[in-house]
Design a protein around this nucleic acid. Structure first.
Lengths: 342, 342
DNA sequence: ATCGATGATTTCAACGTGGCAATACCCATT
DNA sequence: AATGGGTATTGCCACGTTGAAATCATCGAT
């Protein structure tokens, strides 16, 4: 079976024109049952596969969309990427994956449409880009932003209500009677909207409860990995007054913090309650299990692709940028309740 | 700035032929400094980007490789995919990701080169395919297998020595004085070579130590998720004699088993020692931390892409299929030692 | 002044496909 | 037999790029 064979070769074998073969393949015009069968046989015998490059060149579309995320190996983005790839396949799209590693330059390059117009659209989860960049850079192709807002409405946006969610998480800790609540996950050096919003929700909840904020309990991190969560937790435990609860801006940070608590002999949740954010699989099997804010990832994936499809298939008239808020819920588990809820 | 502009348009603007513009872009022929500058200006003004589809059509290459793995959200494959994507970028390749979800049909479809010849090559980590399939299916494009061996040498293969590694893991447990060692992770319904090899290494170690094998301690799983590890562990604890150690074929299964041990009040490692396989990030921060077989993932990624490159760029003469064994090492942590090694 | 050599640039064609318009065919109706 | 209307099929071209070969320009050597 030859690896490559063209419409022309199939046509020659079936004794018809190349155009007819094309019609059979795409079902784009009426073809008699007899001809169709003859062509189909030739296709099977030659093992013909349409050439995507030629098709794209002709049609101006590639059927490929890009997915740009900070890191594939992070559980949250891994889970999300998995869902997005599946959802894309449902729509007959293939997905190209690009890791930005939180590099602003890499993110900016993607926005300006580098890469040779392979992609029909782009789903990007910006982490390092400032709102400023997003505003000034004209998107060169249909684009959906995950998490970060684009100020000028240049692209669709799909995200949870971070402020409200962080507020809920913190309020949950307050309800348990905790008052010395620390936060782990600020990223002041990046103009990271997501971290800022979660910090805002955290402060709002404290303010409403009349608990005075303590700047030394708002810990910054260099990355979102477990290691950084552990480091921040160590700093908190080494500080003057130890907190009795921690709200970590991601589950990875939370698990890192939990690890450090174990290492230092601090009992979770008795002496230290922990809440995370993302609801990654690990948190359901950690010891104790992790209380967390669970965004509806499946819906994020579905909505993001819906937006992209609308934009790609809309006949170049301006579709107004949508800003979709995805539902979330607080999942209470062992790290705040003592019972090993699953 | 126009989104799409062709060589022809740039040529018109610069007052040269399209071919000259092509030469400037690719540096493929000599171009005078003066012309080069004029062309470059036109390129910048028009925001020209080469059209990948046209280039591929002409060259017969796309610069895209495929990566087919069971599941992106699994930590092991997530980490591996991340490394592979980075390594591919170093070689100026873009990566298309496909999730097979352990579906034999999906894997077979990829092998036969479905997908319209978008990919210049394929890295596939088969999980459900039998050696039989791999043998009878002629690969339609350069291909590297991760983990599974292809009997006829039809494709390169990159993997650790599963038998030896499983032997080491089991021997480690024996050295600790454990004798009631269970195994979790067999997949008898899939002709899964990897699981079989790890089972073989496990049995070999027991045999050498003179410990009689107990079939009821070889637990099968339906998938490699934590949930299944937990289920298998529950069955073991509910059985007649409880084991005093477990060798799980993947870290996820191990963490699931550890979770169930906690739930049932079984102390790890005192009453139950646990060893996993893969060295995923979670295991370094779990409580206790997880002893595991650590394959050199970075080297897997590097070697796999090296093989693929050799095959893609070799001028269609037959490159003999290579079978690379990647080094691994046993990393002893808290789940077998009691000390919280990091 | 002429020729050859070297370098710079252009022309031509082709990669495989699908849109468009034209053509060939068949059958029912006049 | 001629007309009309529908169906089935075909030829031609363009998409944007690059390989091969042809053309043009320049300059040094004879």
């Amino acid at each position: 079976m030859r690896v490559s064979s063209s419409l022309k070769e199939v046509a020659a074998r079936a004794g018809v024109s190349a155009r007819t073969v094309s019609n059979v393949v795409n079902g784009s015009a009426r073809v008699s049952a007899q001809t169709r069968q003859r062509v189909q046989e030739a296709i099977d015998e030659l093992g013909y596969r349409p050439n995507l490059a030629a098709r794209s060149l002709r049609a101006g579309r590639t059927g490929i969309i890009g997915l740009a995320i900070p890191e594939l190996h992070s559980p949250y983005f891994g889970e999300l990427a998995g869902l997005l790839v599946d959802e894309a396949r449902r729509r007959s799209w293939t997905v190209i994956i690009d890791q930005t590693h939180g590099d602003a330059e890499a993110e900016r390059r993607l926005l300006t449409g580098d890469g040779g117009r392979v992609m029909d659209g782009l789903i990007i989860s910006p982490w390092a880009l400032e709102a400023q960049d997003l505003a000034t850079t004209a998107p060169s192709l249909p684009m959906v932003l995950l998490g970060e807002r684009s100020p000028q409405g240049m692209a669709d946006r799909v995200a949870v209500d971070n402020v409200a969610a962080a507020d809920e998480a913190t309020t949950h800790l307050l309800t348990l009677g905790r008052r010395r609540i620390a936060a782990i996950g600020l990223q002041p050096h990046l103009q990271n909207g997501t971290a800022e919003q979660r910090a805002e929700g955290y402060r709002r909840a404290l303010r409403r409860a009349g608990v005075p904020p303590r700047p030394e309990w708002e810990r910054a991190v260099g990355s979102l990995h477990r290691r950084e969560g552990a480091r921040a937790m160590a700093e908190l435990l080494d500080g003057g007054t130890a907190p009795d609860a921690v709200f970590a801006f991601t589950d990875e940070l939370a698990l890192g913090a939990m690890h450090m608590a174990h290492t230092r002999g601090v009992r979770v949740p008795e002496e230290l309650a922990i809440v995370g954010f993302d609801d990654i699989e690990d948190g359901r099997f950690s010891h104790p299990t992790l209380t967390t804010v669970s965004p509806d990832k499946r819906q994020i994936a579905a909505r993001a692709l819906q937006c992209l499809a609308d934009r790609i298939y809309s006949p170049d008239n301006e579709v107004p940028a949508s800003d979709l808020t995805i539902p979330h819920r607080l999942v209470v588990r062992g790290s705040t309740s003592g019972t090993q809820a699953h």
